[in-house]
């Protein structure tokens, strides 16, 4: 197995250093660091890492703008945030981020999250699960009949999201529902996929309404 490449973007120098050192110590190859949004985008485009560990509050660009700007790359984005500004986290996840970890999580938890993100698994905190649950419900409530169809969660997906939101790990969920850990992960990824898809559809619609013609222009 080849080494996982990681780019770390954080405007806090001590934190950036500590996190890079931690990741390097666990066998990741840290291909670069960035201290602001625009350089995070540029360096991610230049180095195409497996994972971008992105601080939500970088100077220069919002977290969701960074995610949007690199959404055409294969790089998976893991959001790190100190303040856990809920709306900002949700915006970044809708814009394509695969997961979210609070900075107060232990070093092990963060490394684990990076490993999972590199594998393409969605990393949900209970808080993020609650936000996503709320987002799908709000989409359904606000859906106008003539608008684009709103993606809905299946009963199983809702059930799993509620378990995540009340602090169960995916292993615990698998045990509770008597399904495999892999199946739980698939469900979680589907949920994220629906959210991303909806976001792209909305963006396209927005672009057409404004006469921009193509999604690329909106980015």
């Amino acid at each position: 197995m080849t080494t996982t490449t990681v780019l770390v973007a954080d405007d806090h120098p001590l934190w950036l250093e500590a996190l890079s050192a931690d990741l390097a110590g666990r066998g990741f190859e840290v291909v670069g660091t960035a201290a602001d949004g625009p350089s995070a985008v540029r360096r991610t485009q230049a180095t195409r890492p497996d994972v971008l560990v992105l601080d939500l509050n970088l100077p220069g660009m919002r977290g969701d703008e960074v995610c949007q700007a690199i959404s055409d790359l294969d790089t998976h984005v893991l959001i790190l945030s100190a303040s856990g500004e809920e709306a900002d986290v949700l915006a970044a996840v809708k814009a394509g981020a695969m997961g979210y970890v609070v900075k107060s999580a232990s070093s092990d938890e963060i490394v684990e999250a990076v490993v999972a993100t590199a594998r393409g698994e969605a990393v949900f905190t209970p808080g993020l699960a609650g936000l996503v649950l709320g987002e799908f419900r709000q989409m359904r409530q606000q859906a106008a009949p003539e608008a684009t169809p709103v993606p809905e969660l299946t009963a199983r997906e809702t059930e799993i999201l509620r378990f995540v939101a009340t602090g169960l790990t995916s292993k615990e969920i698998a045990a509770q529902l008597v399904i495999s850990h892999r199946t739980v992960q698939n469900h979680v990824q589907n949920i994220l996929g629906k959210l991303h898809l909806h976001n792209r559809v909305e963006l396209t619609r927005f672009a057409f309404e404004r006469g921009l013609g193509s999604v690329d222009d909106a980015q």
Partner: peptide, 8 residues
């Protein structure tokens, strides 16, 4: 204790 809630 962790409180989990929607954005709004």
């Amino acid at each position: 204790v962790e409180v989990v809630r929607p954005a709004g």
